[in-house]
Amino acid sequence: MLIKDTYLDEETSLILSSLDQTLKKFWSTKELRKYRTGDFSQARVLANSLAELEMFRYMIEATPRTAAEMHMLVGANLLPGILSSTLLALRAITDNVVREEIALKSPRAAISSFNIVPAADEADYVIVGESLARRDDVLLSVMESLDPTMKLCKVTFKRSQLSPWNRDELGLGVASQLVGHAEEALRMTIEYSRVRKAFDRPIGSFQAIKHRLVDDAISLELVKSLVLKATEDKSMTEAALFLAMKKVPKIITDSIQTYGGMGFTDDVDLHLHLRRALTLTKIAEPMVGKILDNFRMQHKYDIH
């Protein structure tokens, strides 16, 4: 993902470029596949590198718009689930003591809006809404999960402390990471449609594929624009999160279809983005409960 947005000031652009370079230097989907099998060595290297760059601290201090851009890079680069969750938590929790410990000592945090918490099995802190506890103070039941690099866990607190949280920041973080996943999936697909040929023509020249790519690009731009608007107007957060949850999985599944049969194999990274996006979507669903219920009522008779 290239930093092309002209609205960013020079300092912010440099910070985002440093983050992007660090992620590309120390992480890849090849390493994610190793992580999936239990090899966490490179994930620790990545976490230490981010700590040395003070990216955890900067995530706390960044403006909402800059934080959103950082989350988009996190999504596009498919970080280990616990790192994605930790960066979400840094924006959402308001306990300064805990935030400082995470930023300085780099413990891991898992956060959710309800008691199904992704990556809680790897966390030092578990946060469910306004309840916060150390890992030793919770009972976990690891569930069968779409994304084995960010396992869903059912959490029961043995004891916890009341810790106010910023619901809007968590919603914006999830929506921004979803945008990052969609951006990378669409980038991969556009590149593939230019080089893959059928009947001696790039498949991107075929009307059906061309129209699908354009539709998805428009959908993605709409979602991203709403997310960035929500960084300035928090009343837009729920709508931005809902739209990201609705549009991003479709963009990624469209990308898989464009790849044809190969798109469904482990040789292509698209399914990794889809797994992560659906995991984020599932745990954020309670945050848009009312708007989601209204949408379902409006479309319950639709045939798709």
Rank of each mutant, 00 (worst) to 15 (best):
A67Q: 01
V97D: 15
E100G: 01
K151H: 14
A123M: 15
L87Y: 07
A103H: 11
V126Q: 00
F242Q: 02
C153G: 10
D269P: 15
L139Y: 09
V179E: 08
L83A: 03
E191Y: 14
L274E: 07
L14E: 07
F295A: 08
A76K: 03
D137F: 10
A120N: 14
P249V: 09
R91D: 00
R167M: 01
D216L: 02
L78V: 09
L272Y: 05
K300P: 01
V126N: 06
Y7A: 13
T22I: 07
H181V: 05
K24L: 09
L241T: 00
E183F: 08
D233N: 15
L140K: 09
S41D: 11
P202H: 08
K30Y: 13
M72A: 10
T86A: 06
M262V: 14
C153K: 10
R99Y: 00
W165G: 05
F295I: 10
F26H: 15
S13F: 10
G260A: 05
K197M: 15
S160G: 05
T6Q: 14
A133D: 07
T6L: 14
D269H: 12
M150F: 00
I15Y: 13
E122W: 13
T231H: 02
G180S: 06
P64N: 09
L186Y: 01
L146Q: 02
A68N: 04
S131Q: 08
Y125D: 03
M55S: 05
K300Y: 11
T149P: 04
D95L: 11
D20V: 04
M72L: 02
S141Q: 06
A109V: 15
A217G: 09
R44T: 12
R159V: 00
G173K: 01
K24I: 11
V174C: 04
S18F: 12
V155R: 04
G75S: 15
A198C: 02
A76Y: 11
S18C: 14
K158I: 09
L220S: 05
G260T: 14
R44N: 11
N96M: 06
D269I: 13
A133L: 03
L243R: 03
M55P: 13
T279S: 10
R187K: 14
K197W: 04
L170Y: 03
R91E: 02
R91G: 05
D254G: 07
D293K: 02
Y35C: 09
R187L: 12
G173Q: 01
L140S: 07
L140T: 10
S18D: 15
D5K: 04
G261C: 02
Y125Q: 00
R275F: 08
A277S: 14
A185R: 00
L90A: 00
K246C: 00
V227C: 04
A175V: 05
L146C: 01
L140D: 12
R201I: 07
F264Q: 15
T189C: 12
L170G: 03
N294R: 15
T12C: 00
D39L: 13
N48S: 12
A240I: 09
L19F: 07
I218A: 02
E101Y: 11
A198N: 04
I82K: 06
M188I: 11
W165M: 09
R91M: 02
M55T: 07
L280M: 04
A109K: 14
R201M: 11
S205Y: 12
S145T: 07
D267S: 14
L292R: 05
L186C: 02
S255L: 03
A230R: 07
L50N: 08
